[in-house]
Write a protein that binds this DNA or RNA. Structure first.
Lengths: 209, 209
DNA sequence: TCGCGCATCGGTCTTGGGACCGATACGGCC
DNA sequence: GGCCGTATCGGTCCCAAGACCGATGCGCGA
């Protein structure tokens, strides 16, 4: 029997979830919470196997509540169920430790299936959330385009970020030391850096390496 | 009508998928491929909306075929369907551009639903793959433990990696410049670095920043 | 008790890094 | 033709960085 806690600030939603859960074989509602703080409290007291967590709640939002529950009781699995399909919600929930993220318009049967998946230790996301997560995995936010530097400067920058000295860069690019120094100097100005260390940091932040 | 290409080296599997697809409303099989190379060829010729792609195939594996198809025809969506649930497969497929990743033991009805999701532009993964992707998102591989340095040295290292000068670090830690220099010097030796730039690189590679 | 690792501090010395000055050449653009 | 951005190169100057030497005090385990 999978013991479920329902956390949502709307009583109607809670009741609806409770009916759905209790009618599903193998599931049982063991508690309700109307705020994030309540969810944490009840989660600590009743140790449910699964928490259906809303994001927007008074006192404490669902993300923060998820963070605390997951931190204190890792065996408790949290399934985020929200009306709004926002990036920050998804990323925040996952960072907080949620095992799943679904929208409230998910058909009941699918919700039950999803709860089984989550309770079994696997994870599951709404398709839109999946797409975004994959997107971020494949193409992590690269603020590289923000660097307003020339192509040659970019080449020099990556070599600097590889730890090469100006002399080594000069050899590598078949130019004189003076030229490299000029490029580095221009880079320092353009990127508002004091030393080449800042250039390395900028390169890493821009995902150039 | 969603036009589907089935790529799998086993004729039995292809036939099975074809029957399933053609019996589903809104779907139509437009081609088959027994190798990755064939999949690329047929994909280029027939421009299917969706490709059911196996990973292990002769001539060219499904990952590489996916990479080429996605590179040339971004509107073609690839759903990876494989027997084996391996990390490299999942990550490789996603990097290659696949929009989904399912196991061959997926029930037919769910496969059809998944194909609808994929065709609609969203993404979908098998629960085990979802869990792993989330895991990697939340807790990216951190080679931080590998650094054999003292606690104080670690503190200095992160400040170096933030771009601070030795003097600034000294102020920040309420110690003398000499002390900082000693720590930096020890760090350079321990991490086999020639300059502080290498320290910054090491810090970033170790995910210390 | 002695040794060892760690953190702390000071000194000297060399060198690469960076600021700042200058210059030439090439290509695109109005 | 003239302007501008870019890439190239040279020189001078200064200083932070780093190597290398020394030292002290503290805690911990053999």
């Amino acid at each position: 029997m999978i013991r479920v806690l329902v956390a949502d600030d709307q009583a109607l939603i809670r009741a609806s979830f409770r009916r759905l859960i209790d009618s599903a074989p193998g599931f049982q509602t063991v508690g309700e919470a109307a705020t994030g703080a309540q969810a944490v409290t009840v989660g600590a007291r009743d140790r449910p196997d699964l928490v259906l967590m809303d994001v927007r709640m008074p006192e404490m939002n669902g993300i923060e509540a998820t963070r605390r529950i997951c931190a204190d009781y890792p065996q408790t699995r949290v399934l985020m169920v929200t009306t709004f399909d926002l990036d920050e919600y998804v990323y925040g929930a996952l960072q907080a430790g949620a095992a799943g993220f679904l929208l409230k318009d998910t058909p009941p049967a699918e919700l039950i299936r999803s709860m089984n998946v989550i309770a079994s230790g696997e994870s599951l996301l709404a398709p839109t959330a999946t797409r975004r997560l994959i997107q971020r995995f494949v193409n992590p936010p690269s603020r590289a385009g923000g660097l307003d530097i020339t192509e040659r400067e970019r080449e020099v920058l990556v070599l600097v970020a590889r730890g090469m000295s100006n002399a080594e860069i000069a050899q590598s690019l078949y130019v004189s030391l003076s030229t490299v120094k000029t490029h580095v100097s221009n880079l320092l100005t353009k990127l508002d850096a004091r030393t080449r260390v800042h250039l390395v940091i900028a390169a890493y932040e821009a995902r150039l390496v």
